[in-house]
């Protein structure tokens, strides 16, 4: 599986056995490391909060209530995230999905970063051009993207803590328009970019978009916020089901 690139065709029938590379033991160790770091952080922060609590009239019972409320309210969203993560296992393998989609990042940004990285190598995620090398670069792009978020947090948090006037006085109109334009622009271009690939891509895209629209509409009309949490997972499952039915004959189903 570790053929030099010279022996591989650049596109087409390259070694597309992604999962053998994606489940490399070193990647599993890194996932365990990220889990461990979050556990350590949570323990340190819990202890610090317990020490500080009496000074602000927070009883041990309040601490317990807060922890339990946080835990209980996270059950639904965590399961929703897990569903999305499972849907992406076939594309990225468990270690990348656990560290990128489950923790640190999110499905929207990391799948987008992977898609952008793949197209920078002239490849497309999931099809025959998606070789092990493309996977490695896509995984790198997702991870470095997440690292930049953390870097921004590391730099900005101390500055904001000091109440840096310059940062707080950023033009509010720019803060309203520019990020929204960047986000919608990015996802619109990435989304529309899927359409020319095939009719089934169009179908998957439209079905998933419709399910998400319906979920958000019902969430608002009926006041059911769980529909918002599960929107992405439901859209992916229904969209993939539609794709499977449409592609059935082609994949020998």
């Amino acid at each position: 599986m570790h053929q030099p690139l010279a022996l591989q065709p650049l596109t087409g029938t390259g070694p597309t056995d992604i999962l053998s590379v994606a489940n490399n033991p070193v990647l599993w160790i890194c996932v365990a490391g990220v889990f461990g770091v979050i556990v350590i952080q949570s323990i340190v922060f819990m202890r610090a909060a317990r020490r500080a609590a009496p000074s602000v009239d927070m009883s041990p019972q309040d601490i317990r209530t807060s922890f339990r409320s946080g835990a209980v309210s996270a059950i639904g969203p965590s399961l929703a995230v897990s569903l999305v993560a499972v849907a992406l296992l076939g594309l990225f393998g468990a270690p990348a999905v656990l560290s990128r989609i489950g923790l640190i990042g999110s499905a929207a940004y990391d799948v987008s970063a992977a898609g952008i990285a793949a197209s920078s190598m002239g490849a497309k995620l999931g099809d025959a051009s998606y070789t092990q090398a493309v996977f490695a670069v896509a995984f790198f792009a997702m991870s470095i993207g997440g690292a930049m978020w953390m870097l921004a947090t590391l730099v900005l948090t101390p500055l904001l803590r000091k109440g840096d006037a310059k940062i707080r006085s950023i033009n509010p109109a720019a803060m309203a328009v520019v990020p929204a334009a960047a986000l919608i622009g990015a996802f619109a271009c990435l989304g529309l970019g899927e359409l020319p690939k095939s009719g089934i891509h169009v179908l998957s895209f439209l079905v998933s978009a419709a399910v998400m629209g319906l979920c958000l509409l019902l969430a608002r009309k009926l006041g059911k916020s769980w529909l918002r949490e599960w929107g992405l997972g439901l859209s992916i499952v229904v969209g993939l089901t539609a794709a499977y039915l449409a592609a059935g004959p082609a994949v020998g189903a």
Binding site: V84, A87, L88, G90, L91, A107, A108, V111, S112, G115, L125, G126, D127, Y130, L183, I184, F187, A188, L190, G191, E194, L195, K197, I200, H201, V202, S204, F205, L206, V207, S208, A209, V211, M212, G213, L216, G231, L232, S235, I236, G239, L240, A243, Y244, A247, V251, G252, A253
Partner: peptide, 24 residues
Amino acid sequence: SVLLVTRLYVLPTVLGAVLVQAIV
């Protein structure tokens, strides 16, 4: 066959939903 369909078409399903979510 299910794994193949997932790999091929999970990207448009993620992006379709995410675009709607971003717009809303």
